[in-house]
Computed example of a mutant assay.
Amino acid sequence: MSSTSTGGFAAAPGQFRVGSVMNKTFAILGRRFGKFALLALLPMVPVLLVTLAMLTSSPPSASSFGAAIAAILFGLLTFVLQILAQATSLYGAFQEMRQKPFTIGDSLRIGLARTVPVIGVGILIALAMMLGFLLLVVPGIILGCMLYVAIPACVIEKLGVTASMSRSVALTKGYRWQIFGLFLLVIVVSAVGAFAFTLIGGNGLIGQILAFGWQVVSTAFAAVQSAVIYHDLRMAKEGIDLDTLANVFD
C-alpha cells in the first residue's frame, strides 16, 4: 500500500486514525503558530469589537426574551466567523502538510475568495445543529460530525453550499465516531480554556480579552485540524495524494 508524507507523518489509503490526525495537527500548528493564530484572529475581530462594545455600553433594558435573541445572534456571528477563519487557514495548512512556505496574504486571498458560499455553509450548519440540539442534543452532535468537512470541501473543491454539505456527509460516512472524538476534544478544550481565563480575569475587560485570545487559539487549532481531517478522509476513501489535493491552489 502506498503512502503519502504529510508534514513528516505517513498517511495511507484506507486509513483514518485519530492519533495521526492529532499528531499532524499539533505538528503543523506548532511550526507556524503565529501565522495560524493571525489567520484565525483577523476574521474574528468583529467578535472582539462587539464584546468590547457590550462591556462599555450601559446595561440594556430589553426583556429577557430580547437578551436571549441577542445572545443567539452573537453566538451565530461567532460561529460563522470561526467558519470563515477555518476557510482562510486551509491554504496554509495544506502548504505546511506539503512542507512548503505560505504567506498570510495568499491564505487570506484564497479563503476569502469563497466568502459567500462559505458563510452560506456556515449559517446552514449552525441552524442545522441548533435544531438538532433542540431535539434532545444527540441529533445536533450527529449533524456536526456529518458536516465537519463541509468548509474544506467548499473551498478546495469549489462546491456550492448544499453540494459542500452533501460532500461532507459522504466523506465522513464510516468515520463519524472518530470525528466525534476529535469534535468533542475541540469543544471541551475551548470551553475549559474560556472558563479558566474568565476565572482568572473575571467578567470584566481583562477576563473577556483573555477569553477571546483563547478563542482565537482554539479556532486556529480547529481550523488546522479540519484541513488534516479532510485530507485524511480523502486519502482513506479515495487514495488521493496531497499534491493532487493542493493543485487547486496553484
Rank of each mutant, 00 (worst) to 15 (best):
10 A>P: 07
3 S>A: 07
176 R>V: 05
140 G>C: 13
66 G>S: 11
129 M>V: 13
91 Y>C: 03
201 G>C: 03
225 Q>R: 04
155 V>F: 07
146 M>E: 08
203 N>L: 06
137 V>W: 15
135 L>A: 13
145 C>T: 07
130 M>A: 15
115 T>N: 10
142 I>T: 03
12 A>C: 03
106 D>A: 13
153 A>M: 02
175 Y>L: 09
84 L>K: 00
59 P>R: 14
35 K>D: 13
143 L>Y: 08
126 A>P: 07
57 S>C: 00
87 A>C: 10
135 L>P: 03
244 T>N: 06
30 G>I: 14
165 M>K: 12
83 I>G: 07
155 V>P: 02
241 D>K: 10
179 I>C: 01
75 G>A: 06
17 R>A: 15
235 M>V: 13
228 V>F: 05
131 L>T: 09
84 L>P: 00
162 T>W: 15
26 F>S: 01
122 G>F: 11
31 R>V: 14
103 T>D: 05
220 A>P: 08
40 A>I: 08
148 Y>L: 12
208 Q>C: 00
65 F>P: 09
53 A>S: 09
140 G>V: 14
197 F>D: 02
131 L>I: 09
69 I>L: 06
241 D>Y: 05
77 L>W: 09
141 I>F: 12
240 I>C: 01
81 L>P: 02
117 P>H: 07
243 D>F: 10
134 L>I: 09
198 T>C: 00
191 A>Y: 01
145 C>R: 07
